[in-house]
Amino acid sequence: MNKTAIFLKGIIKENPVLVLVLGACPTLAVTTNVLAALYMGIAVLAVLVCSNLCISALKNLIGDNLKFVANILIITGFVSLVQMLMGAFLPKASDMLGIYFTLIAVNGVLLCEAGDFARNNKVVDSVLSALGTGIGFTCALFVIALVREIFGNGTFAGIEIPFLADYKISLLNATPGGFLVLGLVMALLSAINKKPVEEICFENQKEGEVNA
């Protein structure tokens, strides 16, 4: 694949949340607020880029049998790092994301990225892919948060929208709403892609990935 294709695949064709169906956990949890979604997206992007970089750089030093462990070590390390930095310099973000950012450490998005792509490609490509996937992740989160916050809470990043605040559908902003909105957005995207989500997922599963 050429560089542009590598970068773009993470955004639409293989959007981690909406197409590959990875990392549903943080998606649903932080999308009650647009700001939180953005924070999470950027934080995940940071971890993705760094971990892909490292894993790709070290790929020749770690044998196949220990690759999984090494991946987890690197990813978890970066998650802790970013978490500490967030706590010190962006305390509001840290509060909003809470425990869900830490759970990125065992999240499918990063592990899949690391496991297949970074492992098998050059450093530059891995970084590009990470960027693309991270941006795709952020976009997906942003779209879902937009729907959930504007229609579920009548606010945008905490600022009230005068008309909608009186007509909010609270359920969208609550726990069940997350599932609903994600499902709807996924259906929408698959309609745009003209490819039912089911197919893509099974394709991946046939390759024997760890689909977590």
């Binding site: 070290l58 030093l61 770690i62 044998g63 049998n65 220990l66 462990v69 090494a70 070590l73 690197i74």
Partner: peptide, 14 residues
């Protein structure tokens, strides 16, 4: 040898 290399790298990584 591969194994040893991996383990060493891993430890260093830790």
């Amino acid at each position: 040898k591969n194994n040893v290399k991996s383990v060493v790298t891993l430890t260093a990584l830790c």
